[in-house]
Amino acid sequence: MEVSTSTPRDAASVDWPSDWLRATLGFLALRALSPGPSYGYAIISELERYGFGTIKGGTLYPLLTRYEAAGLVTTEWRAGDGGPGRKYFALTDQGRAEVTRLSADWLRFTDVTTRYLDQPTREGSP
């Protein structure tokens, strides 16, 4: 996967609460690898393009290292075009299954949250 410059429709530059990002960044990074192997900057650009803000290398790489240790991703160094080599991350079968499971769980969780938030509030309550 190379860095894309097109902007998705729902992208917005928002500073999400750091707790929310901490909770979701793991499987978002895995999801960014679903289309195919990718490298650090391309993953960061992909997430930024979709409105998650700019993820720092100091946040992303430890996550990917942990996933590599857990067998969810594999890594491979490929020669760069005239520049330094690039470290590509790719999902393993186990990683792919994990993305599917986590995505389904997240959708269920957001559905429950949305239903709760959408319920009418009692009059006079804060």
Partner: peptide, 16 residues
């Protein structure tokens, strides 16, 4: 070596 090289790769991409 792997950690250093991947950090340098990102810095070269972002200019940070």
């Amino acid at each position: 070596g792997d950690t250093v090289a991947s950090a340098k790769e990102l810095l070269s991409d972002t200019g940070q």
